[in-house]
């Protein structure tokens, strides 16, 4: 296996290259785009599956429920009479439940970001290209040699193509 790094300066060329590579049978997983700014047009061509919203919601529910259960247990464990209120009251604990739920959502979002972006817990060990000042680098994971892919990248306007061995 080897990695081809093709540098592009124009969004249209890059989009065309991605479309042609996918038509050629290259999977989305084998493609990775590196740039110093997000390239929005390419985001639609290389959408990544995400469970971030689900993670945030589940985390929110877990932390919110945990905090509420803790409060109820504490209030039963040490009944504190305050201003004639019932010992356990949903009204009086709603604010803390809400804040804990929101804290859970923040925590869940952070964890999912770290996981999905590969910043932490990443199993992908592809070589990272040097980012150009302008433009972007398209990384293609392919069989060693792969002359057709190289030709395709060249024909779609790649300004520079580099071959990086997977061992690198």
């Amino acid at each position: 296996m080897e990695y081809l790094h093709a540098e592009y300066q124009r969004t249209e060329d890059l989009a065309a290259a991605i479309r042609l590579l996918q038509a050629d049978g290259v999977s989305r997983r084998a493609l990775e785009l590196y740039s110093r700014r997000p390239v929005e047009a390419v985001t639609q061509l290389l959408p990544r599956r995400s469970r971030m919203s689900l993670g945030a919601v589940l985390s929110a529910i877990a932390v919110g429920t945990g905090a509420t259960v803790l409060m109820y247990w504490i209030q039963l464990d040490y009944p504190l009479v305050t201003g004639g209120m019932p010992i356990v009251s949903g009204w009086a604990t709603a604010v803390v439940t809400f804040e804990a739920t929101m804290a859970g959502a923040v925590f869940g979002t952070l964890l999912m970001l770290l996981k999905e972006s590969g910043l932490v817990l990443s199993r992908r060990r592809a070589p990272v290209p040097d980012l150009p000042d302008e433009g972007a680098v398209l990384q293609v994971e392919c069989e060693t040699g792969a002359p057709s892919i190289r030709a395709l990248l060249k024909n779609t306007g790649a300004s520079r193509i580099e071959v990086v061995d997977s061992a690198a």
Partner: peptide
């Protein structure tokens, strides 16, 4: 690293 996975995850987050 600036990969599109990271950009997409960041914008979603």
């Amino acid at each position: 690293t600036g990969s599109d996975r990271q950009w997409q995850a960041l914008e979603r987050a």
